[in-house]
Nucleic acid binder design. Structure first.
Lengths: 127, 127
DNA sequence: CAAGTAGTACGGCGATCGTCAAACTACACT
DNA sequence: AGTGTAGTTTGACGATCGCCGTACTACTTG
């Protein structure tokens, strides 16, 4: 399911401004746990984990305002959980799986599994 | 290693006031992650995980005031991470391993392993 | 160029957080 | 009874959090 338009020209690549990402070694466990302790951000991370490709911010459609959405994505990026790049007008998001797995082996998987299990227990709506 | 005084009377058991603990099913992943995202509380949990027996609050000697210590233990109890009972003048703490492992398999272990790994990376002092 | 789309920056708001000191309660031991 | 030890409660503080709306920038497409 690729989104290419022209076979010859590559699609809009990393354009314009640059985003700051922490280096792998600078990622801190406390920050990651804190980032994941917010339901909105957990939702983003779970969605990102299900997909293999990058997702733009807009596909998430969180039940909060646009500025709050921006805020949550920024928290996730600044603590090293996701990687973001600009692609045309969109900003693409991807989980930093390799970095997280290298730093904290098994952590992401057990958190994701725990979230899925809890969602099952609570009937899926989380309330 | 019992602390009995009289052969007839059992040692200081769960005395006086009662402490509220969430039922196993009421433990929420967000709350656990939030609780663990604080360095002070992580330290407590890691120490508790190393010991097999209960530990009193006072053996931790956290670099914060007594009231702050009380606060952190309360957060840990109320979110279901630890179990506390009064035993004489002391308050004994234990990790709710069985509950956490049942609810979130592998989570606690990977968090503890991640904390240990990170401590190694950062040289042990965590700063 | 104009219009539209995707996301940002900048306050500001109320709630929560981590922290403390001071006064207090509960229990043990002399 | 009196002293000491362990932990609690309250109220306060500054910092951070999650959230919003408004105004803005960057890119795409007509």
């Amino acid at each position: 399911m690729q989104t290419q338009t022209t076979p010859t020209a590559p699609q809009p690549q990393a354009s314009g401004r640059s985003l700051e990402h922490p280096r792998r070694e600078a990622i801190r466990l406390e920050d990651v746990l804190h980032a994941l302790s917010d339901p909105m951000r957990m939702r983003v991370v779970r969605t990102l984990a299900e997909e293999t490709c990058e997702l733009s911010c807009s596909v998430f459609d969180l039940p909060v305002s646009k500025s709050t959405t921006t805020h949550h994505f920024r928290v996730l990026r600044e603590c090293g959980v996701i990687h973001q790049i600009y692609r045309g007008t969109a900003k693409m998001n991807a989980l930093r799986r390799a970095d997280l797995d290298a730093l904290f082996p098994g952590l992401l998987d057990s958190v994701l599994a725990a979230a899925a299990l809890q969602e099952g227990r609570l009937g899926g709506d989380g309330s």
